[in-house]
Simulated assay, not measured.
Amino acid sequence: MRGRKPKPTVLKIREGNPGKRSLNKAEPNAPGDVPSCPDFLDEVAQDEWFRISEILTDMGILSTADRAALAAYCTVYSRWVHAEEQVKKFGTIVKSPEKGFPMKSPYLTVADQAMESMRKFLVEFGLTPSSRSRIRVETKKSAEDEFNAFVGAG
């Protein structure tokens, strides 16, 4: 199937369903628990896992169903960090191994590809300014507000 990916119903609701299209009433609900950090992630990826999972939990977005996507994001984040360290060490232009001609650093290519992968994951999780601006989150009401709404008081 071609075309745009369907947007999850929870995001359509948070955005106010601007297209006024019917919502998927049979969409599965993912369990809301925080997924466990995979053992295979390196130290940089694990640090990012705990940093970003806290943010996603506070946003009310993270689910145990997101474990693989979050692990993939953390993996490319770590790859980006390591590649950027090498770019800082060797520069963006290096000498080619054969004839010593200047060429783009392979680490810069790795960093650029990892950054593009990270951007895609960040958009999926609503973690870029533009993707976040399309999400509306219900504010939590206090018990007093709920009581007033129940009894019909202003």
Rank of each mutant, 00 (worst) to 15 (best):
N17C: 02
N17D: 02
N24W: 02
A26R: 13
A26D: 14
E27C: 11
E27N: 08
E27P: 11
N29M: 11
N29W: 00
N29E: 10
A30Y: 05
P31A: 11
D33K: 13
D33T: 15
V34D: 02
F40T: 10
L41R: 07
D42Q: 02
D42F: 01
A45P: 09
Q46V: 04
Q46D: 00
D47G: 15
W49R: 08
F50S: 04
R51A: 07
R51H: 08
I52V: 15
S53L: 08
E54F: 00
L56S: 01
D58R: 13
G60D: 01
G60C: 05
I61S: 08
I61W: 04
S63P: 03
S63F: 01
T64I: 10
A65R: 12
D66W: 03
A69Y: 01
L70H: 05
A72S: 13
Y73L: 15
Y73K: 05
T75Q: 09
V76Y: 11
S78C: 10
S78D: 05
R79I: 08
W80N: 15
V81M: 15
H82F: 11
A83W: 01
E84T: 09
E84Y: 03
Q86Y: 05
Q86N: 13
V87H: 01
K88H: 13
K89E: 12
K89N: 09
K95L: 13
K95E: 08
K95Q: 12
S96D: 14
S96L: 05
P97K: 14
E98M: 14
E98W: 10
E98D: 14
K104Q: 12
K104F: 02
K104T: 12
S105T: 06
P106D: 06
P106E: 08
Y107E: 10
Y107K: 11
L108P: 01
V110L: 14
A111W: 07
A111R: 13
Q113R: 12
Q113M: 06
A114E: 04
A114W: 06
A114P: 07
M118K: 11
K120S: 07
F121L: 01
T128E: 00
T128Q: 02
T128N: 03
R132P: 00
S133K: 14
R136H: 09
V137C: 06
E138C: 04
E138M: 09
T139G: 07
K140Y: 02
A149R: 15
